[in-house]
Design a protein around this nucleic acid. Sequence first.
DNA 1: CGGTGAGGTTAATGATGACTAACATCCTCG
DNA 2: CGAGGATGTTAGTCATCATTAACCTCACCG
Lengths: 199, 199
Amino acid sequence: MREVTTAQTPTRNRGSRRTEILDAAARLFAARGFHGVSIEDIGAAVGTSGPALYRHFSGKEALLAEMLLDVSERLHASAADRVTAASDAEQALDALLNGQIEFALGHPALITVHDRELGNVPEPARRQIRRLQRLYVEEWVTVLSELYPGCPPARLRAATHAVFGLLNSTPHSAGELPPEAMAPLMRAMARAALAEAGN
Amino acid sequence: MREVTTAQTPTRNRGSRRTEILDAAARLFAARGFHGVSIEDIGAAVGTSGPALYRHFSGKEALLAEMLLDVSERLHASAADRVTAASDAEQALDALLNGQIEFALGHPALITVHDRELGNVPEPARRQIRRLQRLYVEEWVTVLSELYPGCPPARLRAATHAVFGLLNSTPHSAGELPPEAMAPLMRAMARAALAEAGN
DNA sequence: CGGTGAGGTTAATGATGACTAACATCCTCG
DNA sequence: CGAGGATGTTAGTCATCATTAACCTCACCG
């Protein structure tokens, strides 16, 4: 029972436990759903048992809230960065697509939890997450509006959600194709779908 | 507390309670997840209280199993019918798309539960559902293979899953667009995405 | 040294929830 | 009428679970 965990220098350990827990919890939540996972399960997944988690998070819901807040922030910030760095709408859309694809393929559990478990986040954080999600969508809609001026925003918003559905499906159909083949395929399909939506 | 429920003739009631329960449960499961819904919740949703459900289903998991089995069967049967009725691969694909879109827009809760809760179905039924889902996908892949011969089936399978992701996202982005506008948009986007995947 | 704080541990505690039991209704069919 | 079945009801029972309490350990800083 030594639990030596490959001794790291204390300074390199900064917050490592928290993120380790968040990672494990994300995988479990993605697989069995928020209510299908117990605190004990999460503890076991990181080699401690149950109530140790309360040294790092104030509760199960708080853990979920932090997880989703972090994802929303990363997605939104990355999108904002990429869009302002792009020189035209074409490139901006490419950058948005790449960002979403990288994230979906790189963090399948987080993406899954992100679009299933918002309902279990308690109210203070819930609103904040929704806000970031909305901003993220608007980032896409703005770029698409520039690219397809005649197209009503409501239609572009629906198309954006549909493309998220397409891209976020990769976690579930994992294994069909290696990621090196999956990424370009998703990019091509998403682009084609958006072009069609824009008319 | 009379609960008169607009008296129906007994014969017209055949199995109505079961399906009423399944409908309510689907909505609840879609909104809060299998483990986030109690038997008591489901009972309340159909105007009875809790344990009355055991007169109709042997338990919560059995209820879910029946729900998912029914969906898989309907999807697969409808797909098989439509494909054999079609005169060529083009029309077959159209028919498959229309079927999936109708179902996703017509039964959003069922679609949501169908691709989230398989993991909570106990083993005898789980295998059966998986089998039907696989057959359903193969129905699509067969049609697509005919339409895009050079394209490796693994790629077509991945593309099919992606399109399901796109089409099944409609329940979540509900309200963006009226269904009369949503259906053609989804059809157009899915077609374009598949054409791109087929090269 | 000594104490303090971070991170764990194992036992409560208190809800909640699935499922069962025992007991009504009431409709139907003989 | 009267037995039977279908369908409910309420009150357990037994697990599971989130959360808290009370107690350890040990690295580090004075």
